[in-house]
């Protein structure tokens, strides 16, 4: 399984928006899945509207090779953003890919494996855990929507976003591992404001501590968004066949 998993996952790098994450091939048609927040830059304008700019320079590194990627979902619809998925195509055809598990069979306590490219690692990192719970969480992008989410004790940190959470028993994907893009986190906003305060340069250790906290420390369970939302994208329906 190891080599197939390694070839079916990749590190996503978006040079123009300064973001990186993970992703994976799904099905035999060559679609590559990642998180929306890995390939978009989000801002909020004065009216409170969320503005998103998709990366125009998306690359995926797989087993030491770098491939150009392009978006295949409709940029003008908000569904991928709400459910935090993006579907890409790479200028390569992969024979290694994940199949999708039957999500109605998934249960609490099952062993799962997360694969991704966290932090600055250039190699895929695999970690094993269990499904701690299956919950409904508010979308971290838009409070109106809720998302079926797998809480897990697998190791998921910055850079894992977009990688697959797979069922250990059969290697089928059940979710997209996700580090929350916490635009609603008030504590985080406050810390960000401190970093930009005048005079913070004179308190370099404090600033370093805040920046380290913002970058690396997370509290709570890791989680993965159910793969059902990405699989429900019209791109799969419009092909007239499943993956």
């Amino acid at each position: 399984m190891g080599d197939r998993w390694r070839l079916a996952t990749g590190k996503v790098i978006c040079h123009d928006i300064g973001k990186a994450g993970s992703g994976f091939f799904i099905g035999s048609q060559g679609f590559f899945i990642t998180n929306s927040h890995v390939v978009t830059k989000m801002s909020i304008d004065k009216t409170g509207a969320i503005r998103l700019d998709y990366s125009r320079q998306m690359f995926v590194q797989i087993a030491g090779n770098t491939y150009r990627a392009s978006l295949v979902i409709d940029e003008n619809t908000d569904r991928p953003v709400v459910y935090d998925y993006a579907i890409l195509r790479l200028n390569v055809t992969s024979r290694a890919y994940f199949d999708v598990a039957n999500l109605s069979e998934i249960s609490q306590g099952e062993e799962v494996i997360a694969i991704g490219y966290p932090l600055d690692f250039g190699e895929s990192i695999v970690s094993k855990g269990v499904i701690s719970a299956i919950v409904s969480r508010p979308s971290h992008i838009n409070a109106l929507h809720r998302i079926r989410t797998f809480l897990t004790d697998t190791l998921i940190t910055y850079g894992n976003s977009g990688g697959p959470l797979i069922r250990a028993s059969d290697g089928k994907v059940i979710g997209i591992t996700t580090m929350p893009h916490e635009i609603r986190d008030e504590a985080r906003e406050r810390l960000l404001r401190y970093v930009s305060l005048p005079g913070i340069e004179a308190m370099r250790p404090i600033r370093d501590l805040i920046e380290f906290t913002l970058k690396y420390l997370t509290i709570g369970f890791n989680y993965a968004i159910s793969i059902e939302y990405a699989m429900g994208d019209p791109i799969f329906g419009s092909l007239g066949e499943g993956v």
């Binding site: 409170g48 509207a49 908000d78 953003v81 409070a143 109106l144 635009i183």
Partner: peptide, 20 residues
């Protein structure tokens, strides 16, 4: 279910707490 299915010139703008 909050998503535009068909539109004649209108667009949807997401906010953190809903949409327009």
């Amino acid at each position: 279910d909050n998503f535009i299915e068909a539109s004649k010139g209108c667009n949807k703008e997401m906010t953190q707490y809903g949409y327009r």
